[in-house]
Simulated scan of single mutants.
Amino acid sequence: MIRYPLLTAGATIGVTAPSSGVQPELHGLVKQACARLEAKGYRLVVGDTVWTQRKAKSAPADVRATELNAMLQDARLSLIFPPWGGELLIEVVDRIDYEAIKPTWILGYSDTSVLLLAVTLMTGLATAHGANLVDARGEYADETTGMWETVLATRSGESVRQLSSPLYQLAWDHDNPTPCVFHLTEPTRWKTVGGGSIRMSGRLLGGCIDVMRHLIGTPYGDVKRFRETHLNGEPLIWYLENCELSTADLRRSLVQMKLAGWFDHCGGLLFGRSEANRPTEGYTVEDLYLELAEELGVPVLYDVDCGHVPPQMTFVNGARAEIEAQEGKAVVTQFFEA
C-alpha cells in the first residue's frame, strides 16, 4: 500500500539541506525562492544547514540527519523542499528514523533522489522527483516545472495529468536568469527505441542514477521487499537520469541494477535528457538504450523531461502511471492509488 501526503493552500514548507548547503554568495537565491513561496501564501521554516557548506556537504552527517529527522517528524510541515542536491546525501540514509516520518512530501532531484527512493522503499510513503527550491525563485514558473504544486495537491484516489514540455534548455546561463529561471529554447522531443508510439503502465520509481545506484545491496535499496510489501503484483516503471556518468559507466550501472533484481517485473524505462551522454569508443547511449530494451523486453523512452536538463516533470515514487508517447510528444497520467 502506498500513502500520499497532501500539499494544501497556505501549507508550511520545511527547507533543509541533507546534502549540499548554500555558499554565502548564493544565499540570495534561497531568500528569493522563499519570498516567492511566501507571496503565494506558504509559510517557511528554514533550517540552519541551508546556510552552510564545507567539504562537499552542508554539515556533518549527524547534524544534517538531526535537522532532517526533526522536519520529517514535524506534523506542521506538508513539504520538505531542499535548496538543491549535492554529493553526499547517502551519509544520512542510515540515520533517518523511518518509522517516525509523518505524511510529508519530499521534493527535489539530483542527490536528493537518494533520500526520495530510500524513504519510499522503506516506508511506502510517496515522494516527489521534481524541482529544487531554488528553481522556484522565478517571477513565474514554466508550465512543466510549475506543475509540482498541482501534483503535490492531488488527493489520494485522484489522478493528475502532465504533458511533455514544448521547449527545453540547451545550456545553463546562471548569471542571466530569465523570468522563469531557465532558458527554454530547444524543441522537446521524447524519443522511443525503435521509433513509433509507446504505451506503458506501472508504479513509478527512479531518480539520478549516479547516486541512487549506491543504494543497491543496502537495506535502503531493497526493491524486492518494496514490491512484495507495498505493491499488488504491479510492474515498475523506472525513470532515470544521468548527471555525470560516461556511457560505459551508465551501462555498468544499469547492468548492476538488472543483476540486483531492480528491473524484475519491469513495465518500461524512461531516461531523462543528459549532457553527459557522450560516446565511449563509439558506444553511444542510443546503443545502450537498444540493448536494454532487447534484454528486458520492455518499451524505452528517452530524452524525457527529467533531471539536470530543464524543465522537468514531477514524478511521484509509488504512484501508478500511464504513459503514452508518439511523434515526440507524451502524456503522463499519475494515479494516487494505494
Rank of each mutant, 00 (worst) to 15 (best):
L245D: 12
V298F: 08
R161Q: 13
P310D: 07
M257I: 05
F226G: 03
T66V: 12
M1L: 08
T123C: 07
R76I: 05
E281I: 08
L26R: 15
V300W: 06
V193P: 01
M212C: 07
H174I: 12
A61Q: 00
D305E: 13
R43H: 10
S197P: 12
P187G: 09
G124T: 02
A128W: 04
S253H: 13
V298E: 06
K31C: 08
V63N: 09
L44P: 00
S19R: 00
V160K: 06
T66M: 13
G10W: 07
F336D: 01
A128H: 00
M200N: 02
L204E: 06
E291T: 12
E244S: 13
E25M: 14
G272I: 02
Y220A: 05
Q32V: 07
H27Y: 11
Y168Q: 08
L44Q: 02
L152G: 04
E234F: 03
Y289S: 05
E322K: 06
S253M: 13
R64H: 11
N176K: 13
A131W: 03
T8V: 11
I101D: 00
Q23W: 14
K40W: 08
F263N: 06
G108T: 06
E234L: 09
G130P: 02
C306W: 09
Q162M: 14
I2T: 02
A153Y: 05
S20C: 13
D222Q: 03
V63T: 15
E234K: 09
E87A: 10
L270F: 05
I216N: 08
G272E: 04
L89K: 02
P187I: 10
G217L: 06
R189M: 12
T185R: 13
P310R: 03
G221D: 05
S253G: 13
D97G: 11
H129D: 11
V255D: 14
V304Y: 10
Y289D: 06
A65S: 14
L26M: 15
N242Y: 11
H265S: 14
S110E: 01
A70E: 15
A11Y: 03
D249R: 13
I90A: 04
H183F: 13
T333D: 01
Q256T: 15
T229I: 10
A70R: 15
L254K: 02
T218V: 04
E25Q: 15
Q334F: 04
G194S: 06
K57T: 06
K191C: 14
S159R: 14
K329D: 07
T280P: 10
